[in-house]
Write a protein that binds this DNA or RNA. Structure first.
Length: 575
RNA sequence: CGGCGUGUAGCGCAGCCUGGUAGCGCACUUGUCUGGGGGACAAGGGGUCGCAGGUUCGAAUCCUGUCACGCCGACCA
């Protein structure tokens, strides 16, 4: 491609509302343009990268035996009612009516559609297993779209669905996909990690997320450097401390803590470590009927954070919200900031984190304004609480597999694989006839990859002060030819064109920058866009039969023989 | 959904407090020079100041409403 025939729309300054680096660089490099909140146009330049990502995903899916298809982006809402997800999915589901007042949604995912397809087409065990996938535009009406393409509302996703006659066969396919995903992310040139994940509302058993490691990620991943353990912190178990609770030493006492309602302030005022403090969270479980079952107190160590997903899973808690100020006042007689588990009314359920359960002589709120208690002990000053794992693991916690200590890194979720089992097949009556001629419900797996998001996360991982440094596999062009004095020198024009043709013939994606721009502009643009190799043709080099080459990540350019350019590039991309 | 903030040329911003013919940089157009790191000079084009209403002789500026966008917040008790 010649620049003069292409569209290069680079910007010197990024729009002020761009937040993360990938978003700024994608905007500046002219890869995307925002049309509405969380909705982006992909420019010709940006689309080249998107298509390359797609191509690698497609290639590996096909290689693994999955069959590509294309389902509609628009789906009848009826299907969602049939699966029972219509109500559950909530406002993220973009719904609309057609001219006949029939309800439709723009698909945020396609379990229903694919299951409907399979139940109609597949009748016999002989036709199974079957793995269907598509690369489709999805729409999720996110509360807060942000980070550009990383948390957009409209995005491109590869979603695959497998159908099996048995759980064993599902598990086999799951392992195949686990390996396939490793191949895909490796080929894309990303640093990533597969982590055990919460199965969330989708249900099912086994599940892994694939995260690209980047500080701007929205997920915390706990992993053990000494073993292969890795899990989303949502899921990572905080083991119970192995050391027993020390004996009570201090007497309980009231301490004035005027206006100190934050844990940090209280700890400082009392001159104790944050970990010597117990913070009390008042929550209200919300049952399906919406009836109020009363306030429940959760106890966490001052330096720990609540894991809401773990709390959700406790018997009798389920979905919950934090108690409103009036509710706290009514139940405990005090405002949030000074509440505690001591001396509370009978019947209030108290659940302590495992780490709290082994604390002695701790401090906590006194249920009185501007007052905290010190020297508090379970069994003496208040009843022994219920104990559960309700906190997020932190760096330094023992690994749940018993093999070392956890570290925590940030990650961007770019892939997710699930063993759905029979949830949708059952709801939608997706069955097959077994060898015995009996109708059985199919076992299902589902496997997603955020194609759009991969581009953003690749940039988060690969950039410098000059711009994007794309992995070669997904750069919009692999080689840029930058001629010096192109518009003045027929010799340069000819040499550039010859080189261009030669590289195209050799199979490279070449961009010949034949714009009538000054060299600085061309260099800056090629670097901003992130083209992996740059070739400069100048009068002097030409006379000596040489070409200047510079890799995007190299600090210095070097001269090579004109005749050896193709070999040089092949070698550089083979690495 | 709550709190805060911002809407002025394609992008980045000033002007608003203290009303009086709308500005700067980049980008764009034309010309000349320049030609290895976002070049110089000259001449241009482009804005119902988010929208609606109000106050006023007069509103980008003050008031009210509204829409859009952004940030923060559900937990740090």
């Amino acid at each position: 491609m010649r620049s003069s025939q292409f569209l290069i729309t680079t910007l010197k300054e990024a729009p002020a509302d761009a937040e993360v680096i990938s978003q700024k660089l994608m905007l500046r490099a002219g890869l995307i343009r925002r049309l509405a909140s969380g909705v982006y146009t992909w420019t010709p330049m940006g689309l080249r990268t998107l298509r390359k990502v797609e191509g690698i995903v497609r290639d590996e899916m096909n290689r693994a035996g999955a069959l590509e298809m294309l389902m509609p982006a628009v789906q009848p809402f009826e299907l969602w009612q049939e699966s029972g997800r219509g109500d559950q999915y909530g406002p993220e589901l973009l719904r609309f009516k057609d001219r006949h007042q029939r309800e439709f949604v723009i698909g945020p995912t396609h379990e229903e559609v694919v299951t409907d397809f399979v139940r109609k087409e597949i009748k016999s065990y002989r036709q199974l297993p079957l793995h269907l996938y598509q690369i489709q535009t999805k729409f999720r009406d996110e509360i807060r779209p942000r980070f550009g393409v990383m948390r957009g509302r409209e995005f491109l996703m590869k979603d695959g669905y497998s159908f099996h006659t048995s759980f064993e066969d599902l598990q086999r396919e799951y392992r195949v996909m686990f390996d396939t995903y490793h191949r895909i992310f490796t080929r894309l040139g990303l640093r990533f990690r597969a982590v055990a994940a919460d199965t969330g509302s989708i249900g099912g058993t086994g599940s892994h997320e694939f995260h690209v490691l980047a500080d701007s990620g929205e997920d915390d991943i706990a992993f053990c450097p000494d073993s292969d353990y890795a899990a989303n912190v949502e899921l990572a178990e905080a083991l119970a401390p192995t050391t027993p609770r020390p004996a009570a030493g201090a007497t309980m006492a009231n301490v004035a803590t005027p206006k100190k309602s934050r844990c940090e302030d209280v700890a400082e005022a009392l001159n104790i470590p944050l970990s010597g403090l117990v913070k009390t969270l008042a929550i209200v479980p919300e049952t399906a009927e919406g009836t109020n079952t009363g306030v429940v107190l959760l106890l966490l160590r001052g330096d720990h954070d609540l894991n809401e997903i773990k709390a959700d899973k406790i018997e009798g808690i389920g979905a919950f919200r934090f108690a409103r100020e009036e509710e706290v006042k009514e139940t405990l007689g005090c405002i949030p900031g000074f509440i505690g588990p001591v001396g509370i009314k009978d019947g209030i359920r108290v659940i302590a984190d495992r780490a709290v359960a082994v604390m002695a002589d701790f401090a906590c709120g006194a249920n009185a304004y501007d007052t905290h208690l010190t020297g508090v002990n379970f069994g003496r000053d208040l009843p022994e609480p219920e104990v559960a794992d309700i906190r997020n693991v932190v760096a330094g916690d023992p690994s749940p597999d018993g093999k070392g200590v956890l570290e925590i890194v940030r990650g961007i979720e770019v892939g997710h694989i699930f063993q759905l089992r029979t949830k949708y097949a059952e709801a939608l009556g997706c069955t097959f006839l077994s060898e015995q001629g009996k109708a059985e419900v199919m076992e299902m797996g589902c496997y997603g990859i955020g194609v759009t998001r991969i581009v953003g996360s690749a940039i988060e991982q690969n950039h410098d002060d000059k711009g994007i440094a794309f992995p070669a596999a997904i750069a919009p062009f692999s080689v840029a030819i930058v001629p010096m004095g192109y518009h003045k020198s027929p010799a340069i024009q000819q040499a550039a064109s010859e080189l261009y043709e030669e590289l195209i013939a050799a199979g490279f994606d070449v961009l010949l920058d034949d714009r009538n721009e000054r060299p600085g502009v061309m260099f800056a643009d090629m670097e901003l866009i992130g083209i992996p190799q740059r070739l400069v043709i100048g009068e002097k080099g030409l006379a000596a039969g040489q070409i200047e080459v510079k890799g995007r990540r190299d600090t210095e350019a070097s001269m090579i023989d004109r005749a050896g350019v193709v070999d040089y590039l092949r070698k550089s991309f083979a690495q």
